[in-house]
């Protein structure tokens, strides 16, 4: 049995498609600003599927930073638990795609699923081939940071500004 982290913050996305990489950009910025206790960690998950299973199973709480598609304006931020909206989440039949939520279900099947919270933002541009965020997303990094700090505080994770 692995020793579990109390909290893992996991940023997801593809940094080659501009705002698609929001979660990863968040992780990079956050890491530069804060240092926190050994029972928490922050990870750039990219667009990985099963390779993240180990990380997902090694934590009590999981905070995912991702993008979300919804009929709303870019930059809008959502916070939800995956189990709160299972019936509306679309599972793929795709040839290869491993949805992150699919991964969470498999973790549950193993009896190892963390308590998961997702903070997700509506991207403005996820088509351009660029490694920089659009300015709307750039401005939202701080808002998400505030939300993440709040989550950490609720879990009593010690955190220090570098």
């Amino acid at each position: 049995m692995d020793i579990k982290y109390k909290l893992t913050i996991l940023g997801l996305g593809n940094i080659l498609f501009k705002d698609e990489g929001f979660g990863v950009h968040f992780v990079r910025q956050f890491k530069k600003k804060y240092r926190f206790a050994d029972n928490a960690r922050i990870i750039d998950g990219g667009t990985l599927g099963y390779a993240l299973m180990n990380i997902v199973c090694q934590t009590e709480h999981l905070l995912v930073i991702d993008t979300v598609k919804a009929n709303d304006k870019p930059g809008s931020i959502y916070r939800f638990h995956p189990e709160a909206i299972p019936s509306q989440l679309e599972y793929s039949v795709s040839a290869h795609e491993v949805e992150f939520l699919d991964l969470l279900l498999k973790a549950e099947m193993m009896g190892d699923a963390p308590q998961t919270t997702i903070i997700a933002i509506i991207p403005e541009d996820m088509h351009s081939v660029e490694m920089k965020l659009s300015s709307t997303m750039q401005d939202s990094l701080l808002t998400v940071e505030r939300l993440v700090l709040k989550e950490m505080k609720n879990l009593s994770i010690e955190i220090k500004r570098i």
Binding site: V68, Y78, A84, E90, A95, H96
Partner: peptide, 27 residues
């Protein structure tokens, strides 16, 4: 699938089927 296609994995975005997601908006 037997070819193990590697086409669909380059992008991550959560795609809810309905607008129910609205109630989770925080910002």
């Amino acid at each position: 699938h037997s070819f193990d296609p590697c086409l669909a994995c380059a992008v991550h975005i959560i795609n809810p089927r309905s607008n129910e997601i609205k109630k989770f908006r925080v910002q």
